[in-house]
Design a protein around this nucleic acid. Sequence first.
DNA 1: CCCCCCTGAAGATAGGTTTCTGCAAGATCG
DNA 2: CGATCTTGCAGAAACCTATCTTCAGGGGGG
Lengths: 365, 365
Amino acid sequence: MTAAGNHQASRTGRRLERAGIRDVAAAAGVSITTVSDALNGKGRLPDATRRHVREVADRLGYRPSAAARTLRTGRSGLIGLTVTTYGEEPFTFTEFAYFAEMARAATSAALARGYALVILPASSRHDVWGNVALDGTVVIDPSDHDPLVTELVRQGVPVVSDGRPAGSLPVHAWVDNDHEAAVLGILDHLAAAGARRIGLLTGTTTDTYTRLSTTAYLEWCERVGQEPVYESYPAHDPRAGAVAADRLLARPDRPDAVYGLFDPNGTDLLAAARRYGLRVPDDLLLVCCSESTVYASTEPPITTLSLQPRRIGTAVVQLLIDAIEGVGGAHPVQQVMPTELIVRTSSQRRAHRTTVSHPRGPAGG
Amino acid sequence: MTAAGNHQASRTGRRLERAGIRDVAAAAGVSITTVSDALNGKGRLPDATRRHVREVADRLGYRPSAAARTLRTGRSGLIGLTVTTYGEEPFTFTEFAYFAEMARAATSAALARGYALVILPASSRHDVWGNVALDGTVVIDPSDHDPLVTELVRQGVPVVSDGRPAGSLPVHAWVDNDHEAAVLGILDHLAAAGARRIGLLTGTTTDTYTRLSTTAYLEWCERVGQEPVYESYPAHDPRAGAVAADRLLARPDRPDAVYGLFDPNGTDLLAAARRYGLRVPDDLLLVCCSESTVYASTEPPITTLSLQPRRIGTAVVQLLIDAIEGVGGAHPVQQVMPTELIVRTSSQRRAHRTTVSHPRGPAGG
DNA sequence: CCCCCCTGAAGATAGGTTTCTGCAAGATCG
DNA sequence: CGATCTTGCAGAAACCTATCTTCAGGGGGG
C-alpha cells in the first residue's frame, strides 16, 4: 500500500510541516475519526487498532493542535493568574515571597489536574485578556468593584479569588485566611509573653487584609483597655516601611511589642530597635507577617506569621477547576484557611529554646 | 457504555451565548470579511464603515475567539516560562527572589509586545506542553541536553534561555551574566578591603552558574597565590546552607572574608559569624549573591551582588519575541548582561559611614 | 430463516476566525 | 465613449480537531 495523499509534500517548503491528524490517518490506513478516537480513548475500537494508531502517531511525532482542540472543545486548559497592582508593575513589591510561593503551589495544583497557569496583569492597555482563551481565572486580592472581574464573570469565565472579594464582587468562590483570628492570636501571644503596650505597623492601603487586620487590632485594644499605638505607610514602598518602623519606636508612648503586617517589617523594626538601643526580645517583642526564611537566622530570629500561601494557592486552584468542570455546586464557596505562627526568639521573653548551646571554637577568633 | 446523554441545553437558554463575528456582521449589515478587516485595521474600508462596525461590535460585547484566531494565524500570543527543577516542585527554592523578579520583568516585557506568559514545569508526566499552543519558550537554567528543549526546538518552537545552555543545546539565543567577571570583581573588591584569605560558599550542583563561579574563584586563587577555602552544599536545601556556612567558619584555616553564591548565604554566614564571635566587617568581610532587600537592613548591612534579573527577564523576552516574529537574524544570539555589586558595610573594613557607632559590649553568646 | 443488535469504522459537520480571490460600480484616462 | 483602474465589499477556503451520524456486516435470538 503506497501512501496516498502524499501530494502536499512541499506546499511552500518553508517550515517544517507538522504532522496533522490526517497525516496520521493516511499513514495508518484508517480514517480521521479512528485516529481521534484511538488517541483520546473514546469510541469503540479493538485494542489492536488503538495500538497501531498510537504507534503510527508516535512515529510521525504527531501532536494534536492545541488551538484546534480548544476551538472544538471549548476548553483550553489555561487558567489566568492575576494580582492587583499598585502602580504600573504587574506585581506588588511587598507580595513577592507570598506571590512566589502561592504561584508555585497553584502551578503544581493546576498541573496535577492538567491545567497550566497564565500570568496576566490586573490592568493593561493592550487587551491581552481578550487574546487568550481562559477556562477560568484566579485573582489575588481583587480591589473593590474590580472591572476586570466583573467583565470576566459577565463573559461566563469562572473566577476564584485569593482574599475576600471586597464589595459585592461576583466571584464564584474565594479562599482567605482568618485574619482577625490571626491578629488576635498574635496579640494574645505577645501579651502572654509580657507585653504591656503592643504597637502595630500597618498600611495605608484599603485592601481587605490591611483593613481586617487593623480592625482586629483596634478591637483587641478596646477589649483589653490598651491605647492603640500604630503607624501606617503605603505598603508598596519599601523605604516608607523603614521610616514608619522608626517613627513607631520614636514615639513618646513607645510600645514594648510590635506586630508588623508586611514582610519587610521584621528587618526594618529590628534595625530601628538597634538604632534606639532596644534589645530584642528583652526591651521589645517582635512579630511580623512573612513567608521569608531569613527570619529564622536574623539576630535574634524573629517570630513570623505565615499565611500559608502554598495551601491557599492549592485550594484556590482546586476550587477554580471544580467550578470549571462543574464538579462543585453552583453556589459560591468560601473557604477559610488557618495561619501558622512560627514562634522564634523575638517574641519569647523568658527562654531561648530554639537553639542549643553551641560550643565556642577551641581556637577563639 | 455510557449513554450519550449530551444535553444540548437550550440554544438560547441558560448559557450566555457569546457574540461571534457573524453576529456582528449581521447586526452591522455587512459581511464577515468587512467586520474582520474593520476590527483589525486591514483591507480597504472607508472610516465610516470602520467606525460603524466597531460601534456595533462594542455594543454586542464582541470578543474574537482566541482559539479560532490562533488556529487560523498560527500565533497564540503565548510564551512558555520554565525553570529547571530540582526535585518535584516546579520551582527551585533558592531561586525565589531571582525568579520572582525575573518573571515580573519578563511578564511586563512580554505584555508590552502583546504576549502573555505561561508557567510550565520543566518536566511533567501529564503532557501539558503538548496541550498549550506556544509561540516560543523561555527556559531558565536548562540542564545539559535537556530533552524538553530538544523536543521544542525539533518542533520548531523558538527557545531562548536564561543562562548559558550547557552542552550543545540548540537554543535560538541566550542571555547570561558575566559570572567570571562578577566573581573576580568581588574577590578584588574584598582583597582591596584588606582580605588575606577569601573563602567561598558554593554548591554541589553542576549548573552553569555554580560551575563558572567556582572555576573563576579557583583561578583567582591560583593567580594571587592563595590556597582555596571553600565549602559546598546542595543549593536547594536551605538547612544545608546554614550548616555549610558554619563549617566554613569552623575550619582551622578560617577565611577572613567570604563570598556566598546563593541568596540565603548572607544571613547564614552572619549567624555563623555571631556564633564564633566574629565581628563583621572587622573580623570577617561578607558578600553574597542575592536580590533580596533584607540585606540592606541586617546588622550590619551586607554587600550583595545583584544579577539584575529584571534586565535579564526583559532581554530574554525581547530576544524570544524577535525570534518569533522573525525580526533578528537567523543565527543564534548571545547576550551578556552586567552584574551590579551593591557595596554595604559588610565588605568595607575602614569606615562605617552608614551607621553611627553603637555602644554595645562584647556580643553575647 | 429472518430480524435486530452490536461491533468497527468511515463521512460529514461544526467551531470562529483570517485572508485570498473575486466582483460590481464608479472614477479616470486615452 | 470604451477601456482600465480604483474603491468597497462579499464569498469561500483553510486552519485542525472532536463528535454526531451513518453504514456495512456478522452473529445471536426468536
